[in-house]
Computed example of a mutant assay.
Amino acid sequence: MAGMFLLATMLFSSGTILGQKKEIMVRLSEIEIYPEYVSQYKAILKEESSASVKLEPGVLAIFPMSQKNDSTQIRIIEMYQDKDSYQLHLKTPHFQKYKTTTLKMVKSLKLVDMNAIDPESMKMLFRKMEE
């Protein structure tokens, strides 16, 4: 048993698996909501994003926003510790509730995976928020 723990520690230490560094997953969700559902959708989204950040260690940030001049246009910056954390997020009860209750409210959805240009600055952002 101790040998398995040592092996797991070696494989997963420093965010690496067998020498491969796990990368933070960043995604931009571009969502258009039908106008009659905007306030209801925002309330459900606020509940889901808050639960995700509070309850899931692998969720670094879920930051929902709406365009100033068009409240039907929602953008969400999502940051996960890695792709595995994202996959776990999709299976949580709060995400499943969000997805099923808002399905009829969404006119369009586009998920855009992003690459961080300066990941070191991203780390500083989180440190600054703690100050």
Rank of each mutant, 00 (worst) to 15 (best):
M1L: 05
M1D: 14
G3Y: 11
M4T: 10
F5T: 14
L6S: 14
A8F: 09
A8H: 13
M10W: 10
L11T: 15
F12G: 15
S14H: 12
S14P: 04
G15M: 06
T16P: 04
L18C: 13
Q20A: 10
Q20P: 10
E23H: 09
R27W: 05
R27N: 14
S29V: 08
E30R: 09
I31S: 05
Y34P: 12
Y34C: 11
P35Y: 12
E36S: 10
S39E: 15
Y41G: 13
I44T: 12
E47V: 06
E48F: 02
E48K: 01
S50A: 06
V53K: 11
V53F: 01
K54C: 11
G58P: 08
G58I: 05
G58N: 06
G58R: 04
L60N: 15
I62W: 00
F63G: 12
F63Q: 14
P64W: 11
P64R: 12
M65V: 03
D70N: 10
I74T: 08
I77P: 06
Y80T: 04
D82L: 02
D82C: 01
S85K: 09
K91P: 04
T92A: 01
T92M: 02
P93F: 00
H94T: 02
F95A: 02
F95Q: 02
F95D: 00
Q96W: 01
K97E: 03
Y98L: 01
K99F: 05
K99R: 13
T102F: 01
M105R: 13
S108H: 06
S108P: 06
L111S: 11
L111A: 08
M114F: 05
A116T: 12
I117N: 10
I117P: 01
S121L: 07
M122S: 14
K123N: 04
K123L: 05
M124H: 08
M124D: 11
M129L: 07
